[in-house]
Computed example of a mutant assay.
Amino acid sequence: MRVLLTGGSGFIAAHVLDILLERGHSVVTTVRSSSKGQKILDNHKSYNKDKLNFVIVEDIAKEGAFDDAVKSDPPFEAVVHTASPFHFNVTDVQKELLDPAVIGTTGILKSIKKSAPTVKRVVITSSFASIINPFKGTWPDHTYSEQDWNPITEQQATENPANGYRASKTFAERSAWDFIEQEKPNFTLATMCPPLVLGPIIHYLQSLDSLNTSNERIRDIIQGKAKDEIAPTGTFIWVDVRDLAMCHVLAMEKEDAANKRFFITAGYFSNKEIAEIIAKNFPEYKDKLPTSSTPGGDYPKEGLYKFNNERVIKTLGIKFRGLEESIVDAVKSLQSVGA
């Protein structure tokens, strides 16, 4: 298939790109600058311009931002949309989180409908943030699944950046499903809802400063920031970035994934477990790491919500990696950029 991949230099998208190319698809990826695009090409030298190229979309929140990007010769058959802001250092939640997420998502769908009639499947990266009910705490008697939607309101969204991030994912995904229902476009949709995404970074894109938010906890632990107290885990479920990337590609390829939402998680984890895995596999960090008696980072005493990930296992046929493999590979990839 010929595929448009948005946000190609992102943590998840970089893995999606590798899998798409390995599986024989031809890819055009959007980037914010030509230097980022060139970096991607330089690191995939065995693929010619017919197999891999890039197009610049500077601001995904601009009206019509993707109008030109969706046009291609030969034409696109699928779009994988991963580009969306994920960080908490914002001053204006509406302008920096909500607008780019919602306008970026509906904007690309409008552009596809208007200018790319050959596209048959669109896959969008959403988040567990659009599933979780943040007002219920650890909610031990509840099982989360694709049926759940975060009930956050417009008013709550602007109260703080954490609410703003969760709302941006919720509103963006809802707007995508509304678009499908109201506009009846020529393509079907699949949305990916992962919780915390861990695992190796693609080395040529990252420095330790520009690390994706999810992996920062691994960097902080190996840098000694958890020696006296381990930070609270926050979200207690996770998925490896390579498994999530494979789910994006399978959701694009498989007929059965049409118009489905996928809650993609491998299971539970805690920051304490991450520290233990690092201690076991990387003795060189011994002096910087917490010990078994260090407080913090554990599971909540009152118990934890359950999860149902049957749809993603059955429909996409994915087998999830374990936490130890993911953390070990993440640490090795951080070492390669100077951790």
Rank of each mutant, 00 (worst) to 15 (best):
2 R>N: 15
5 L>G: 03
5 L>K: 00
13 A>Y: 03
15 H>I: 00
19 I>C: 12
22 E>V: 10
24 G>T: 03
25 H>G: 09
30 T>I: 02
32 R>N: 02
40 I>A: 13
46 S>H: 08
50 D>M: 04
52 L>D: 02
56 I>E: 06
61 A>C: 07
66 F>C: 06
67 D>C: 03
67 D>F: 02
68 D>N: 10
70 V>E: 03
76 F>D: 00
77 E>L: 09
80 V>K: 04
85 P>E: 11
91 T>F: 10
99 D>L: 12
104 G>I: 14
106 T>N: 06
108 I>D: 02
111 S>N: 05
114 K>P: 06
114 K>I: 06
116 A>M: 09
122 V>F: 08
126 S>V: 06
126 S>L: 05
136 K>V: 04
137 G>P: 01
139 W>G: 02
140 P>F: 00
142 H>C: 03
146 E>G: 02
146 E>Q: 04
147 Q>E: 14
149 W>P: 09
151 P>Q: 09
158 T>K: 05
159 E>W: 01
161 P>Q: 12
161 P>G: 06
162 A>C: 11
164 G>I: 02
165 Y>N: 05
171 F>Y: 01
173 E>D: 08
176 A>R: 12
177 W>C: 11
177 W>D: 11
178 D>F: 04
180 I>S: 13
185 P>V: 05
187 F>E: 08
187 F>Q: 03
188 T>E: 12
200 P>W: 00
201 I>E: 00
204 Y>V: 06
204 Y>M: 07
207 S>H: 12
208 L>H: 07
210 S>Y: 04
210 S>E: 02
210 S>K: 08
211 L>H: 14
216 E>W: 10
219 R>F: 13
221 I>A: 01
223 Q>E: 10
234 G>S: 00
235 T>E: 01
236 F>S: 10
237 I>R: 02
241 V>S: 06
241 V>C: 07
242 R>H: 04
243 D>G: 11
243 D>F: 14
245 A>I: 11
246 M>V: 08
247 C>G: 12
249 V>F: 05
250 L>M: 12
250 L>I: 10
255 E>R: 15
258 A>Y: 14
258 A>T: 14
267 G>R: 15
269 F>A: 14
272 K>H: 14
272 K>F: 15
274 I>R: 04
277 I>V: 15
279 A>Y: 03
280 K>G: 13
280 K>N: 14
282 F>K: 02
287 D>Y: 05
289 L>S: 01
290 P>I: 03
294 T>W: 00
295 P>E: 12
296 G>S: 04
296 G>Q: 01
299 Y>K: 08
299 Y>R: 10
303 G>Q: 04
306 K>Y: 03
311 R>Q: 10
318 I>N: 01
319 K>E: 11
321 R>Q: 13
325 E>S: 00
327 I>W: 07
328 V>N: 11
330 A>T: 03
333 S>Q: 13
335 Q>R: 02
336 S>N: 13
